[in-house]
Nucleic acid binder design. Structure first.
Lengths: 249, 249
DNA sequence: GGCGGACCTTGATCCGCATCAAATAGGGTT
DNA sequence: AACCCTATTTGATGCGGATCAAGGTCCGCC
Protein backbone atom coordinates (compact mmCIF):
# COMPACT_ATOMS: atom_id res chain seq x y z
CA UNK A 1 0.00 0.00 0.00
CA UNK A 2 2.80 2.42 -0.63
CA UNK A 3 0.84 4.16 -3.34
CA UNK A 4 0.78 7.87 -2.85
CA UNK A 5 -2.67 9.27 -2.93
CA UNK A 6 -2.27 12.33 -5.03
CA UNK A 7 -5.83 13.46 -4.79
CA UNK A 8 -5.56 17.16 -5.33
CA UNK A 9 -8.15 19.39 -3.79
CA UNK A 10 -9.04 22.89 -4.94
CA UNK A 11 -7.06 25.46 -2.97
CA UNK A 12 -8.59 27.78 -0.47
CA UNK A 13 -7.43 31.36 -0.56
CA UNK A 14 -4.91 31.93 2.23
CA UNK A 15 -7.03 34.82 3.48
CA UNK A 16 -9.93 32.45 4.10
CA UNK A 17 -7.82 29.62 5.48
CA UNK A 18 -9.01 28.21 8.81
CA UNK A 19 -5.44 27.80 10.05
CA UNK A 20 -4.27 31.17 8.80
CA UNK A 21 -3.44 32.46 12.27
CA UNK A 22 -1.83 29.40 13.80
CA UNK A 23 0.16 27.74 11.01
CA UNK A 24 3.65 28.42 9.80
CA UNK A 25 2.27 31.34 7.79
CA UNK A 26 0.73 33.01 10.82
CA UNK A 27 3.14 35.95 10.81
CA UNK A 28 3.12 36.55 7.09
CA UNK A 29 2.13 39.89 5.59
CA UNK A 30 -0.41 39.96 2.79
CA UNK A 31 2.22 40.19 0.07
CA UNK A 32 3.93 37.14 1.56
CA UNK A 33 0.61 35.35 1.65
CA UNK A 34 0.14 36.07 -2.01
CA UNK A 35 3.46 34.42 -2.74
CA UNK A 36 2.53 31.40 -0.66
CA UNK A 37 -0.80 31.26 -2.45
CA UNK A 38 1.15 30.78 -5.65
CA UNK A 39 3.34 28.00 -4.30
CA UNK A 40 0.87 25.89 -2.43
CA UNK A 41 -1.22 22.96 -3.50
CA UNK A 42 -3.79 21.05 -1.48
CA UNK A 43 -3.80 17.33 -1.09
CA UNK A 44 -6.32 15.11 0.64
CA UNK A 45 -5.49 11.77 2.19
CA UNK A 46 -8.22 9.32 3.23
CA UNK A 47 -8.46 8.04 6.80
CA UNK A 48 -6.04 5.26 7.57
CA UNK A 49 -3.65 5.97 4.75
CA UNK A 50 0.01 6.65 5.29
CA UNK A 51 1.16 10.01 3.96
CA UNK A 52 4.91 9.31 4.08
CA UNK A 53 7.00 6.38 5.22
CA UNK A 54 10.02 6.84 7.40
CA UNK A 55 13.10 6.91 5.21
CA UNK A 56 11.20 7.89 2.07
CA UNK A 57 12.40 10.73 -0.03
CA UNK A 58 10.23 13.69 0.89
CA UNK A 59 10.15 16.55 -1.56
CA UNK A 60 7.54 18.65 0.15
CA UNK A 61 6.58 20.16 3.48
CA UNK A 62 3.02 20.85 4.53
CA UNK A 63 0.59 22.24 7.05
CA UNK A 64 -2.34 20.23 8.29
CA UNK A 65 -5.48 22.10 7.24
CA UNK A 66 -8.01 19.66 8.64
CA UNK A 67 -8.04 16.20 10.14
CA UNK A 68 -5.65 14.37 12.43
CA UNK A 69 -2.43 12.60 11.57
CA UNK A 70 0.16 10.76 13.64
CA UNK A 71 3.94 10.53 13.64
CA UNK A 72 5.20 7.09 14.57
CA UNK A 73 8.49 5.25 14.89
CA UNK A 74 8.77 1.51 14.49
CA UNK A 75 11.46 -0.87 15.68
CA UNK A 76 12.66 -3.81 13.62
CA UNK A 77 10.57 -6.27 15.56
CA UNK A 78 7.40 -4.24 15.14
CA UNK A 79 7.19 -2.37 18.42
CA UNK A 80 5.83 1.06 17.60
CA UNK A 81 5.71 4.36 19.43
CA UNK A 82 3.75 7.37 18.39
CA UNK A 83 5.96 10.44 18.76
CA UNK A 84 3.59 13.15 17.69
CA UNK A 85 -0.05 13.91 17.10
CA UNK A 86 -0.56 16.34 14.24
CA UNK A 87 -3.57 18.62 14.42
CA UNK A 88 -4.80 21.38 12.14
CA UNK A 89 -2.09 24.06 11.75
CA UNK A 90 0.74 21.64 12.65
CA UNK A 91 3.68 21.41 10.29
CA UNK A 92 4.89 18.26 8.52
CA UNK A 93 8.43 17.75 7.30
CA UNK A 94 11.68 19.46 7.99
CA UNK A 95 13.29 22.12 5.84
CA UNK A 96 16.79 21.00 5.03
CA UNK A 97 16.13 17.31 5.35
CA UNK A 98 15.64 15.01 2.38
CA UNK A 99 14.13 11.90 3.97
CA UNK A 100 11.22 11.57 6.31
CA UNK A 101 12.29 10.58 9.81
CA UNK A 102 8.93 9.12 10.82
CA UNK A 103 5.87 7.49 9.39
CA UNK A 104 3.10 10.03 8.93
CA UNK A 105 -0.36 8.46 8.92
CA UNK A 106 -3.77 10.01 8.51
CA UNK A 107 -6.03 9.00 11.40
CA UNK A 108 -9.04 10.78 9.98
CA UNK A 109 -9.26 12.15 6.46
CA UNK A 110 -6.59 14.81 6.29
CA UNK A 111 -6.20 17.82 4.06
CA UNK A 112 -2.68 19.15 3.63
CA UNK A 113 -1.48 22.49 2.37
CA UNK A 114 1.74 21.44 0.63
CA UNK A 115 4.80 23.25 -0.68
CA UNK A 116 7.53 21.71 -2.73
CA UNK A 117 10.53 21.73 -0.49
CA UNK A 118 13.00 23.68 -2.59
CA UNK A 119 10.75 26.68 -3.31
CA UNK A 120 9.64 26.70 0.31
CA UNK A 121 13.22 26.74 1.56
CA UNK A 122 14.05 29.53 -0.85
CA UNK A 123 11.14 31.58 0.36
CA UNK A 124 12.04 30.87 3.98
CA UNK A 125 15.47 32.31 3.39
CA UNK A 126 13.90 35.51 2.10
CA UNK A 127 11.08 35.68 4.61
CA UNK A 128 12.09 35.87 8.29
CA UNK A 129 8.44 35.73 9.35
CA UNK A 130 8.24 32.12 8.25
CA UNK A 131 11.41 30.99 9.97
CA UNK A 132 10.42 32.82 13.14
CA UNK A 133 7.04 31.22 13.24
CA UNK A 134 8.49 27.80 12.52
CA UNK A 135 10.92 28.28 15.40
CA UNK A 136 8.06 29.11 17.77
CA UNK A 137 6.12 26.08 16.61
CA UNK A 138 9.13 23.81 16.92
CA UNK A 139 9.86 25.03 20.43
CA UNK A 140 6.24 24.30 21.35
CA UNK A 141 6.53 20.82 19.90
CA UNK A 142 9.72 20.28 21.85
CA UNK A 143 7.92 21.22 25.05
CA UNK A 144 5.12 18.83 24.17
CA UNK A 145 7.61 16.05 23.44
CA UNK A 146 9.29 16.61 26.79
CA UNK A 147 6.03 16.55 28.63
CA UNK A 148 5.34 13.28 26.86
CA UNK A 149 8.71 11.93 28.00
CA UNK A 150 7.60 12.44 31.60
CA UNK A 151 4.39 10.60 30.85
CA UNK A 152 6.15 7.70 29.13
CA UNK A 153 8.90 7.37 31.69
CA UNK A 154 7.10 7.90 34.96
CA UNK A 155 3.34 7.78 34.80
CA UNK A 156 1.11 4.80 35.58
CA UNK A 157 -1.29 3.42 32.99
CA UNK A 158 -4.23 5.16 34.63
CA UNK A 159 -2.40 8.47 34.77
CA UNK A 160 -1.43 8.09 31.14
CA UNK A 161 -5.03 7.64 30.03
CA UNK A 162 -6.24 10.53 32.15
CA UNK A 163 -3.49 12.77 30.75
CA UNK A 164 -4.36 11.88 27.18
CA UNK A 165 -8.00 12.70 27.82
CA UNK A 166 -7.16 16.11 29.28
CA UNK A 167 -5.00 16.88 26.28
CA UNK A 168 -7.79 16.02 23.87
CA UNK A 169 -10.27 18.04 25.89
CA UNK A 170 -7.98 21.06 25.97
CA UNK A 171 -7.44 20.87 22.23
CA UNK A 172 -11.16 20.71 21.56
CA UNK A 173 -11.71 23.58 23.92
CA UNK A 174 -9.10 25.70 22.18
CA UNK A 175 -10.69 25.11 18.80
CA UNK A 176 -14.38 25.46 19.53
CA UNK A 177 -14.68 27.29 22.78
CA UNK A 178 -17.40 25.24 24.36
CA UNK A 179 -19.60 26.09 27.29
CA UNK A 180 -17.50 25.96 30.40
CA UNK A 181 -18.91 24.50 33.62
CA UNK A 182 -21.25 22.17 31.75
CA UNK A 183 -20.05 18.61 31.35
CA UNK A 184 -17.45 18.31 28.62
CA UNK A 185 -18.15 15.93 25.80
CA UNK A 186 -16.13 14.75 22.86
CA UNK A 187 -15.36 11.88 20.53
CA UNK A 188 -12.04 10.10 20.82
CA UNK A 189 -10.18 10.63 17.57
CA UNK A 190 -8.02 7.56 18.20
CA UNK A 191 -8.60 3.82 18.32
CA UNK A 192 -7.55 1.93 21.45
CA UNK A 193 -4.54 0.71 19.56
CA UNK A 194 -3.48 4.20 18.54
CA UNK A 195 -3.92 5.33 22.14
CA UNK A 196 -1.71 2.44 23.22
CA UNK A 197 0.95 3.42 20.69
CA UNK A 198 0.87 6.95 21.97
CA UNK A 199 0.98 6.02 25.64
CA UNK A 200 3.53 3.22 25.52
CA UNK A 201 0.97 0.63 26.60
CA UNK A 202 -0.84 -2.33 25.05
CA UNK A 203 -4.33 -1.93 23.72
CA UNK A 204 -5.63 -4.32 26.37
CA UNK A 205 -4.26 -2.14 29.14
CA UNK A 206 -5.79 0.94 27.54
CA UNK A 207 -9.16 -0.78 27.38
CA UNK A 208 -8.96 -1.93 30.99
CA UNK A 209 -7.98 1.49 32.29
CA UNK A 210 -10.71 3.23 30.31
CA UNK A 211 -13.16 0.78 31.84
CA UNK A 212 -11.72 1.45 35.28
CA UNK A 213 -12.13 5.22 34.88
CA UNK A 214 -15.71 4.61 33.79
CA UNK A 215 -16.40 2.34 36.78
CA UNK A 216 -14.98 5.02 39.08
CA UNK A 217 -17.20 7.69 37.56
CA UNK A 218 -14.37 9.81 36.25
CA UNK A 219 -15.70 9.50 32.71
CA UNK A 220 -18.97 8.42 31.13
CA UNK A 221 -18.92 6.41 27.92
CA UNK A 222 -21.58 6.45 25.23
CA UNK A 223 -20.60 3.83 22.69
CA UNK A 224 -16.91 3.13 22.38
CA UNK A 225 -15.69 6.54 21.44
CA UNK A 226 -17.97 9.19 22.87
CA UNK A 227 -16.84 10.45 26.26
CA UNK A 228 -18.41 12.78 28.78
CA UNK A 229 -16.40 14.30 31.61
CA UNK A 230 -18.76 15.11 34.46
CA UNK A 231 -16.07 16.79 36.56
CA UNK A 232 -12.92 18.02 34.83
CA UNK A 233 -11.07 18.68 38.10
CA UNK A 234 -11.63 15.08 39.07
CA UNK A 235 -10.04 14.00 35.81
CA UNK A 236 -7.12 16.35 36.44
CA UNK A 237 -6.48 14.71 39.79
CA UNK A 238 -6.07 11.42 38.00
CA UNK A 239 -3.31 12.72 35.73
CA UNK A 240 -0.73 12.91 38.51
CA UNK A 241 0.13 16.44 37.38
CA UNK A 242 0.35 19.40 39.64
CA UNK A 243 -3.21 20.21 40.64
CA UNK A 244 -2.78 23.93 40.09
CA UNK A 245 -1.79 25.44 36.82
CA UNK A 246 1.67 24.01 37.03
CA UNK A 247 1.51 22.86 33.47
CA UNK A 248 2.39 25.01 30.56
CA UNK A 249 -0.63 25.29 28.39
CA UNK B 1 20.09 25.74 48.34
CA UNK B 2 18.32 27.98 45.94
CA UNK B 3 21.19 30.43 46.00
CA UNK B 4 22.27 31.38 42.53
CA UNK B 5 25.95 30.94 42.02
CA UNK B 6 26.92 34.07 40.24
CA UNK B 7 30.58 33.20 39.86
CA UNK B 8 31.64 35.17 36.82
CA UNK B 9 34.47 33.87 34.72
CA UNK B 10 36.62 35.94 32.38
CA UNK B 11 35.24 35.83 28.86
CA UNK B 12 36.90 34.03 26.01
CA UNK B 13 36.97 35.85 22.70
CA UNK B 14 34.27 34.43 20.41
CA UNK B 15 36.90 33.76 17.77
CA UNK B 16 38.71 31.41 20.16
CA UNK B 17 35.59 29.80 21.54
CA UNK B 18 35.58 26.00 21.52
CA UNK B 19 31.89 25.89 20.60
CA UNK B 20 32.14 28.64 18.00
CA UNK B 21 31.07 26.37 15.14
CA UNK B 22 28.30 24.39 16.78
CA UNK B 23 26.51 26.79 19.09
CA UNK B 24 23.71 29.23 18.36
CA UNK B 25 26.32 31.65 17.01
CA UNK B 26 27.68 29.15 14.47
CA UNK B 27 26.39 31.03 11.45
CA UNK B 28 27.33 34.49 12.61
CA UNK B 29 29.62 36.74 10.59
CA UNK B 30 32.53 38.39 12.31
CA UNK B 31 30.69 41.68 12.82
CA UNK B 32 27.85 39.77 14.43
CA UNK B 33 30.33 37.95 16.63
CA UNK B 34 31.73 41.28 17.76
CA UNK B 35 28.28 42.35 18.83
CA UNK B 36 27.76 39.09 20.72
CA UNK B 37 31.15 39.54 22.33
CA UNK B 38 29.83 42.78 23.78
CA UNK B 39 26.66 41.24 25.15
CA UNK B 40 27.90 38.02 26.63
CA UNK B 41 29.13 37.17 30.10
CA UNK B 42 30.48 33.89 31.36
CA UNK B 43 29.24 32.14 34.41
CA UNK B 44 30.53 28.98 36.05
CA UNK B 45 28.39 26.62 38.08
CA UNK B 46 29.92 23.93 40.30
CA UNK B 47 29.05 20.27 39.82
CA UNK B 48 25.77 19.28 41.39
CA UNK B 49 24.34 22.77 41.60
CA UNK B 50 21.04 23.72 40.04
CA UNK B 51 21.32 26.53 37.50
CA UNK B 52 17.61 27.34 37.30
CA UNK B 53 14.50 25.91 38.91
CA UNK B 54 11.43 25.13 36.90
CA UNK B 55 9.01 28.04 37.21
CA UNK B 56 11.71 30.53 38.18
CA UNK B 57 11.92 33.81 36.42
CA UNK B 58 14.69 33.45 33.87
CA UNK B 59 16.14 36.66 32.51
CA UNK B 60 18.90 35.11 30.42
CA UNK B 61 19.62 32.51 27.81
CA UNK B 62 22.94 30.73 27.44
CA UNK B 63 25.13 28.30 25.58
CA UNK B 64 26.98 25.53 27.36
CA UNK B 65 30.69 26.18 26.83
CA UNK B 66 31.98 23.23 28.83
CA UNK B 67 30.60 20.58 31.17
CA UNK B 68 27.35 18.68 31.22
CA UNK B 69 23.96 19.76 32.51
CA UNK B 70 20.58 18.08 32.65
CA UNK B 71 17.00 19.20 32.10
CA UNK B 72 14.55 17.48 34.41
CA UNK B 73 10.86 17.54 35.20
CA UNK B 74 9.49 16.57 38.59
CA UNK B 75 6.00 15.47 39.58
CA UNK B 76 4.36 16.53 42.83
CA UNK B 77 5.15 13.26 44.50
CA UNK B 78 8.81 13.39 43.57
CA UNK B 79 8.94 11.18 40.51
CA UNK B 80 11.45 12.76 38.15
CA UNK B 81 12.24 12.37 34.49
CA UNK B 82 15.23 13.81 32.73
CA UNK B 83 14.08 15.34 29.45
CA UNK B 84 17.35 16.54 28.06
CA UNK B 85 21.09 16.20 28.39
CA UNK B 86 22.90 19.45 27.68
CA UNK B 87 26.39 19.20 26.21
CA UNK B 88 28.84 21.86 25.11
CA UNK B 89 27.25 24.06 22.41
CA UNK B 90 23.70 23.26 23.54
CA UNK B 91 21.37 26.15 24.22
CA UNK B 92 19.58 26.87 27.50
CA UNK B 93 16.40 28.85 27.78
CA UNK B 94 13.79 29.93 25.33
CA UNK B 95 13.57 33.31 23.70
CA UNK B 96 10.12 34.69 24.30
CA UNK B 97 9.49 32.83 27.51
CA UNK B 98 9.82 34.39 30.94
CA UNK B 99 9.90 31.35 33.23
CA UNK B 100 12.04 28.25 33.05
CA UNK B 101 10.02 25.19 32.10
CA UNK B 102 12.45 22.68 33.61
CA UNK B 103 15.08 22.33 36.30
CA UNK B 104 18.55 22.82 34.84
CA UNK B 105 21.26 21.15 36.90
CA UNK B 106 25.01 21.01 36.42
CA UNK B 107 26.20 17.41 36.43
CA UNK B 108 29.83 18.37 36.14
CA UNK B 109 31.18 21.86 36.60
CA UNK B 110 29.57 23.88 33.82
CA UNK B 111 30.62 27.09 32.13
CA UNK B 112 27.87 29.06 30.47
CA UNK B 113 28.06 31.81 27.90
CA UNK B 114 25.07 33.94 28.94
CA UNK B 115 23.08 36.73 27.35
CA UNK B 116 20.47 38.78 29.06
CA UNK B 117 17.25 37.78 27.44
CA UNK B 118 15.98 41.12 26.20
CA UNK B 119 19.17 42.19 24.38
CA UNK B 120 19.50 38.71 22.92
CA UNK B 121 15.93 38.77 21.63
CA UNK B 122 16.52 42.17 20.12
CA UNK B 123 19.63 40.99 18.37
CA UNK B 124 17.87 37.85 17.18
CA UNK B 125 15.24 39.99 15.52
CA UNK B 126 17.96 41.84 13.62
CA UNK B 127 20.16 38.82 12.90
CA UNK B 128 18.56 36.02 10.87
CA UNK B 129 21.69 33.86 11.25
CA UNK B 130 20.95 33.40 14.92
CA UNK B 131 17.32 32.49 14.49
CA UNK B 132 18.16 30.11 11.66
CA UNK B 133 20.78 28.33 13.70
CA UNK B 134 18.49 28.13 16.70
CA UNK B 135 15.81 26.59 14.48
CA UNK B 136 18.24 23.92 13.28
CA UNK B 137 19.33 23.16 16.82
CA UNK B 138 15.75 23.00 18.05
CA UNK B 139 14.76 20.63 15.25
CA UNK B 140 17.69 18.40 16.20
CA UNK B 141 16.61 18.43 19.81
CA UNK B 142 13.09 17.56 18.77
CA UNK B 143 14.41 14.56 16.87
CA UNK B 144 16.44 13.52 19.89
CA UNK B 145 13.40 13.91 22.14
CA UNK B 146 11.34 11.74 19.82
CA UNK B 147 13.98 9.06 19.69
CA UNK B 148 13.93 9.16 23.45
CA UNK B 149 10.15 8.73 23.43
CA UNK B 150 10.61 5.44 21.60
CA UNK B 151 13.16 4.37 24.19
CA UNK B 152 10.95 5.33 27.13
CA UNK B 153 7.79 3.85 25.71
CA UNK B 154 8.97 0.64 24.13
CA UNK B 155 12.46 -0.47 25.07
CA UNK B 156 13.42 -2.97 27.77
CA UNK B 157 15.74 -1.98 30.61
CA UNK B 158 18.69 -3.70 28.95
CA UNK B 159 18.03 -2.00 25.63
CA UNK B 160 17.72 1.34 27.40
CA UNK B 161 21.13 0.99 29.02
CA UNK B 162 22.76 -0.15 25.77
CA UNK B 163 21.18 2.78 23.92
CA UNK B 164 22.42 5.29 26.47
CA UNK B 165 25.93 3.90 26.19
CA UNK B 166 25.94 4.17 22.40
CA UNK B 167 24.77 7.76 22.65
CA UNK B 168 27.56 8.65 25.03
CA UNK B 169 30.09 6.89 22.85
CA UNK B 170 28.88 8.69 19.74
CA UNK B 171 29.05 12.03 21.45
CA UNK B 172 32.60 11.38 22.65
CA UNK B 173 33.53 10.22 19.19
CA UNK B 174 32.11 13.36 17.60
CA UNK B 175 34.10 15.58 19.94
CA UNK B 176 37.50 13.90 20.06
CA UNK B 177 37.70 11.66 17.04
CA UNK B 178 39.27 8.66 18.65
CA UNK B 179 40.99 5.72 17.04
CA UNK B 180 38.36 3.61 15.36
CA UNK B 181 38.55 -0.19 15.47
CA UNK B 182 40.38 -0.19 18.78
CA UNK B 183 38.25 -0.76 21.86
CA UNK B 184 36.29 2.33 22.82
CA UNK B 185 36.76 3.70 26.31
CA UNK B 186 35.08 6.47 28.24
CA UNK B 187 33.93 7.64 31.63
CA UNK B 188 30.25 7.77 32.39
CA UNK B 189 29.32 11.38 33.02
CA UNK B 190 26.23 10.36 34.97
CA UNK B 191 25.55 8.66 38.29
CA UNK B 192 23.39 5.55 38.33
CA UNK B 193 20.58 7.68 39.64
CA UNK B 194 20.91 10.21 36.83
CA UNK B 195 20.95 7.36 34.34
CA UNK B 196 17.78 6.01 35.94
CA UNK B 197 16.12 9.43 35.69
CA UNK B 198 17.05 9.62 32.06
CA UNK B 199 15.92 6.11 31.20
CA UNK B 200 12.70 5.98 33.18
CA UNK B 201 14.04 3.25 35.47
CA UNK B 202 15.10 2.92 39.10
CA UNK B 203 18.73 3.14 40.04
CA UNK B 204 18.68 -0.48 41.19
CA UNK B 205 17.53 -1.65 37.79
CA UNK B 206 20.23 0.42 36.13
CA UNK B 207 22.85 -1.13 38.37
CA UNK B 208 21.60 -4.65 37.70
CA UNK B 209 21.51 -4.20 33.95
CA UNK B 210 24.98 -2.67 33.86
CA UNK B 211 26.17 -5.69 35.82
CA UNK B 212 24.38 -8.00 33.40
CA UNK B 213 26.01 -6.36 30.38
CA UNK B 214 29.36 -6.75 32.13
CA UNK B 215 28.70 -10.44 32.88
CA UNK B 216 27.77 -10.98 29.25
CA UNK B 217 30.97 -9.37 28.04
CA UNK B 218 29.25 -6.52 26.22
CA UNK B 219 31.08 -3.97 28.33
CA UNK B 220 34.11 -4.03 30.65
CA UNK B 221 34.06 -1.97 33.82
CA UNK B 222 37.10 -0.45 35.51
CA UNK B 223 35.88 1.10 38.71
CA UNK B 224 32.28 2.24 38.73
CA UNK B 225 32.42 4.76 35.97
CA UNK B 226 35.06 3.78 33.46
CA UNK B 227 33.74 1.65 30.63
CA UNK B 228 35.43 -0.17 27.77
CA UNK B 229 33.48 -1.43 24.78
CA UNK B 230 35.36 -4.36 23.27
CA UNK B 231 32.97 -4.70 20.33
CA UNK B 232 30.79 -1.77 19.39
CA UNK B 233 28.62 -3.77 16.99
CA UNK B 234 27.83 -6.15 19.80
CA UNK B 235 26.65 -3.22 21.89
CA UNK B 236 24.55 -1.96 18.98
CA UNK B 237 22.78 -5.30 18.76
CA UNK B 238 21.72 -4.85 22.36
CA UNK B 239 20.01 -1.53 21.69
CA UNK B 240 17.13 -3.05 19.74
CA UNK B 241 17.64 -0.46 17.01
CA UNK B 242 17.92 -1.22 13.37
CA UNK B 243 21.29 -2.91 12.92
CA UNK B 244 22.21 -0.84 9.87
CA UNK B 245 22.42 2.88 9.90
CA UNK B 246 18.70 3.25 10.37
CA UNK B 247 19.29 5.89 12.97
CA UNK B 248 19.73 9.52 12.12
CA UNK B 249 23.33 10.62 12.50
C1' DG C 1 -31.54 -10.65 8.05
C1' DG C 2 -27.52 -13.12 8.33
C1' DC C 3 -22.47 -12.73 7.72
C1' DG C 4 -17.69 -11.09 8.04
C1' DG C 5 -14.45 -8.12 9.86
C1' DA C 6 -12.72 -4.30 12.64
C1' DC C 7 -12.70 -2.81 17.10
C1' DC C 8 -13.20 -3.49 21.81
C1' DT C 9 -13.71 -5.88 26.36
C1' DT C 10 -12.65 -9.14 29.78
C1' DG C 11 -10.28 -13.06 32.01
C1' DA C 12 -6.13 -15.86 33.37
C1' DT C 13 -1.46 -16.07 33.83
C1' DC C 14 3.34 -14.56 33.52
C1' DC C 15 7.32 -11.69 33.85
C1' DG C 16 10.03 -7.44 34.07
C1' DC C 17 10.88 -4.00 36.82
C1' DA C 18 9.81 -1.54 41.27
C1' DT C 19 10.20 -1.71 46.01
C1' DC C 20 12.18 -2.72 50.34
C1' DA C 21 16.29 -3.95 52.65
C1' DA C 22 21.17 -4.79 53.49
C1' DA C 23 25.79 -5.13 52.44
C1' DT C 24 29.99 -3.33 50.02
C1' DA C 25 33.15 -0.15 47.85
C1' DG C 26 35.51 4.02 47.27
C1' DG C 27 37.13 8.62 48.40
C1' DG C 28 38.02 12.20 51.07
C1' DT C 29 39.01 13.92 55.86
C1' DT C 30 41.13 14.06 60.18
C1' DA D 1 44.67 4.02 59.66
C1' DA D 2 40.05 4.75 61.30
C1' DC D 3 35.95 7.09 59.92
C1' DC D 4 32.15 8.94 57.44
C1' DC D 5 29.47 9.82 53.47
C1' DT D 6 27.89 8.85 49.10
C1' DA D 7 27.57 5.86 45.25
C1' DT D 8 26.81 1.33 44.06
C1' DT D 9 25.72 -3.57 44.19
C1' DT D 10 23.01 -7.38 45.40
C1' DG D 11 19.13 -10.02 47.35
C1' DA D 12 14.11 -10.99 48.35
C1' DT D 13 9.56 -10.05 47.30
C1' DG D 14 5.45 -7.94 45.15
C1' DC D 15 2.83 -5.60 41.73
C1' DG D 16 1.57 -3.44 37.33
C1' DG D 17 1.18 -4.16 32.92
C1' DA D 18 2.27 -7.57 29.07
C1' DT D 19 0.86 -11.64 26.99
C1' DC D 20 -2.19 -15.22 25.63
C1' DA D 21 -6.89 -16.35 24.87
C1' DA D 22 -11.79 -15.96 24.42
C1' DG D 23 -15.83 -13.58 23.75
C1' DG D 24 -18.70 -9.45 22.56
C1' DT D 25 -20.39 -5.41 19.81
C1' DC D 26 -21.08 -2.65 16.06
C1' DC D 27 -21.47 -1.81 11.24
C1' DG D 28 -21.31 -2.33 6.42
C1' DC D 29 -22.37 -5.63 2.94
C1' DC D 30 -24.36 -9.32 0.32
Amino acid sequence: MRAHSLATTPNLKCEDCPIRHRAVCAKCESDELRELDGLKYYRTVPAGQTVVWSGDEMDFVASIVSGIATLTQTMEDGRTQMVGLLLPSDFVGRPGRAQAAYDVTATTEVTLCCFRKRPFEDMMRRTPNIGQRLLEMTLDELDAAREWMLLLGRKTAREKIATLLTIIVRRDASLQLMGRDGPLEFDLPLTREAMADYLGLTLETVSRQVSALRRDGVIVLKGKRHITIPDFDRLLEETGDDADGGMLT
